[in-house]
Amino acid sequence: MNDFSSIRRDRKLDLAAHAAWLYYIAGNTQDEIAIKLQISRQAAQRMVALAVSERLIKFRLDYPLSNCIALAEALRDRWGLAVCEVVPTTTDPRNGISICAATHLENYLMTRTPLILAFSSGRMLRSVVEQISPMNQPQHKVISIVGNLSHYGHAGRHEVVMHLSDRVGSQAYPVPTPVIATSVEERQLLQTQRSFLTIKALAEQAKATFVGIGQIGWDCPLHRDGFINDAEVTELVEAGAVGEIAGWAYDREGMLIEGATNSRVASVPLEQPAQKLVIGVAGDSERIEAIRAALQGKLINGLITDKESAQKLLATAND
């Protein structure tokens, strides 16, 4: 086999592996695979068959996939989820979760019909953006539901919407506020601005909202990234907060905290229970209580997580 033939075969196997991952791991139909890989439906079918014949997917099917599907169905049934995906746990759970979430997000981004998609921020969602294939989809709007500034004006490192817009060419609408204002009066003033009201109205029309889930405690994401200070962490813990979404803190039952920093959150308000599709993208041992509470309080009605987190969530479902 000459070098050119070898390169062609490698590229064909790459495509077959991608098609098989979408079909067996992400649960895409052959029509969806054809759209995402920009090939015909017949070619998508051949690529999946090639992956099977070349044993490219053997390691996926021996055990982890079937177990993950069962866990996803159990989570879906337990909390009445509209969307639930569970991926095998790896050394860094963020990798597998972000790949799966990116695949799910791309299903929306690849559509020709204009859509509005909303996002919080954070490390996990930034990892999702990094997995998105470059494309040009200017018909879509990508909306942030949370600001990206601290009390003191410095920007967080894990903004999502502008980076996603750069990657896919969609229109970007970042929230022009800090995550948490310095006072109730400042929050009220910020949220009466035309730019905020426009984004809030767009977010309410979103086809889907993807959110990260953070725990509350010392060196939690909000604290580590400078959005809340030491005294505010202490205040939230004493108020019973265990988790947060877009800066909104909630307790063990998933109920939004009264007062504390929640009186100054300048993000788009969360619905409780969520009326539209809100997909939590999260997993690791530190965040189990926060994820479970978000499910319990119906702040999210979709979840993309990893196997180990799914097992822990189900084990604590009745606590």
Rank of each mutant, 00 (worst) to 15 (best):
M124W: 06
C220F: 01
F227K: 00
N229V: 10
R126G: 06
Q275D: 09
P114M: 09
A208M: 06
A206M: 05
D306Q: 07
T111F: 10
K276T: 14
V160K: 01
Y23H: 14
L164K: 01
E54M: 11
R112G: 15
A206W: 04
R78Y: 11
I57K: 07
V161H: 02
L149C: 09
L71Y: 04
E106T: 11
V48A: 05
Q311C: 12
G27M: 09
R287H: 11
L125Q: 02
W21C: 08
E204N: 10
A155S: 14
I99L: 14
S40W: 13
K298G: 03
N262K: 05
A19V: 07
K307V: 07
M47T: 09
R123A: 10
F119E: 02
A74P: 04
L61P: 04
L256H: 01
V233R: 00
C220I: 01
R292C: 03
L61K: 13
M255T: 05
G302K: 02
Q38G: 12
I99E: 14
I25Y: 09
A246W: 00
Q272G: 02
N148K: 09
E258F: 06
K141F: 08
Q42G: 15
K276N: 11
G254K: 01
Q191Y: 08
I213N: 00
I145C: 04
S98D: 05
E286C: 09
R76T: 13
D77S: 15
I7Y: 14
A101I: 07
D92S: 12
E235F: 02
V146E: 02
T261D: 01
L256W: 01
R194K: 15
D77C: 11
G226M: 08
P269Y: 08
P88N: 08
S170D: 07
P176R: 05
S267D: 03
V87T: 12
L295E: 01
D31S: 15
T209E: 06
Q137Y: 13
A274K: 03
G240Y: 01
I145P: 00
E130V: 06
G80A: 10
G214C: 04
Q205I: 09
P64S: 06
A201N: 14
Q38L: 15
N148V: 09
P269H: 07
I291V: 15
H158R: 10
R187V: 02
L236T: 00
D219A: 12
P88E: 09
G259K: 01
T113N: 12
T113M: 13
L37A: 09
Q311I: 12
L75N: 02
R167Y: 05
L109V: 08
I291Q: 00
R41L: 12
L61F: 11
